[in-house]
Design a protein around this nucleic acid. Structure first.
Lengths: 229, 229
DNA sequence: TAGATTGTTAATCGATTAACAATC
DNA sequence: TAGATTGTTAATCGATTAACAATC
């Protein structure tokens, strides 16, 4: 009803997903010595239309200059602020198996203001070890360590069967954001947000795109009769 | 212009992304001994509205029965056909670092009709080793092995700096679908499809959701004056 | 100045949601 | 039969695209 709550409702997910990709290009361009960049330049390198870029960037509130484009430094700062990468955050990893440990070793998180100081697992083999800069603790210590350190974000990489019960423990311990790599739809209370990552969705899209593209090729190259059916 | 090409244009990405998630629930439900399932049941377990489920499932062409729902086996078969999981496909892994090897070890690919018989890398340390059931070969052998085996799909997990040049090699060797985990926008010819996975996009969405949710909580609990601005 | 590029307003498109008749 | 659930048609909503005036 109010303008305030209305603003909160609108998330513009597609734009938010693209912002980190712009950021990456902006930083590369800045490192090459440029200080400004146009929306058409960004569009070209991201296979987008320039109007998409202009609309996306307008969300940051930064104004460009006609004939010149946007100030790169200004834009970088605004994008980073918008997606919260200007404030560093600690996240915990829950489940330090193959995928989990690959994620904790990912070096890209650093520039996203994201670090993973602790991981929790049940496997006695890996307890006490260190993955990159992440130390592995037993699940039993998870609850009090979350409370003590005030951690808000958890990366979930446990087996599917235990995902919901682990999520319940995380919520009970005070976690308010779960980045979920387990293909299970978590049930969480309103004050907790979940970002679901699904490998299977990506693969389904890839396959469907592939067959559609093959079909398209056939149609355009063979120019078969277009009136059948 | 023609009905045929029109059909090809429409991809319904959001629906396709959800289909594997339905499939998972359908299989679980079937294993529990059920033979039918209603759209409201699926909706409840996926945190969706039942109308979304009905619309999504209609893409498969399977008709449900009023009062009863859908035949699970029939629906499973139709979904699997739609997303091409009924025909088994071999994909190659290019770049067998932490993320790449975690992916090749992922056991879920099997039921997606997806296997990864070969990986290619430059690291002499891992050449000749086996990750799960994936054997690691030198990059130099990639081209002729792709041609010999007729592989169509590649999973790209190489360092960002070489991603484009490796993609060029893949395309030259005959690959028509690239599942790209490298945060680089690949330039590929029309006959090649790319499915881009971006960790950074997911993290941006998680963070923005989190702050929006905190703001929402404040608004609803404190009931501050709604007319400011 | 002329022209490239911006920001804004309107139009289109696709996805979601609502309404409701059909049917087992 | 009554009622739950489906499939379809229409309405709404949000995102993309187009058009164009503003400006450096």
């Amino acid at each position: 009803m109010s303008t305030k709550t209305d603003k909160l409702r609108v998330l513009k997910l597609p734009t938010i997903r693209r912002l980190p990709l712009y950021l990456d290009l902006l930083e590369k361009h800045f490192q090459k010595g440029h200080t400004t960049i146009s929306s058409s330049h960004l569009a070209r390198h991201m296979n987008l239309e320039q109007i998409v870029v202009r609309k996306d960037l307008s969300i940051t509130g930064i104004a460009g200059k006609p004939r010149i484009g946007f100030d790169i430094e200004e834009l970088i700062a605004a994008v980073r602020t918008f997606i919260q990468w200007d404030t560093s955050q600690e996240a915990i990893l829950v489940g330090a198996g193959h995928l989990g440990s690959a994620l904790s070793r990912y070096t890209g998180f650093e520039k996203m203001g994201f670090s993973i100081p602790a991981a929790f697992d049940v496997d006695p083999e890996i307890l006490g070890t260190t993955i990159g800069s992440t130390k592995v603790y037993p699940m039993g210590e998870m609850r009090h360590m979350i409370a003590e350190n005030g951690w808000q974000i958890a990366i979930l990489c446990v087996p599917a069967k235990v995902a919901q019960s682990v999520a319940d423990q995380l919520v009970a311990a005070g976690i308010t954001a779960i980045w979920n790599f387990v293909p299970v739809q978590l049930q969480v209370p309103d004050h907790v947000v979940v970002q679901q990552e699904n490998l299977s969705s990506g693969l389904a899209v890839l396959r469907v795109k592939q067959v559609k593209n093959e079909a398209r090729k056939k149609v355009t190259t063979l120019k078969t009769s277009e009136e059948e059916e």
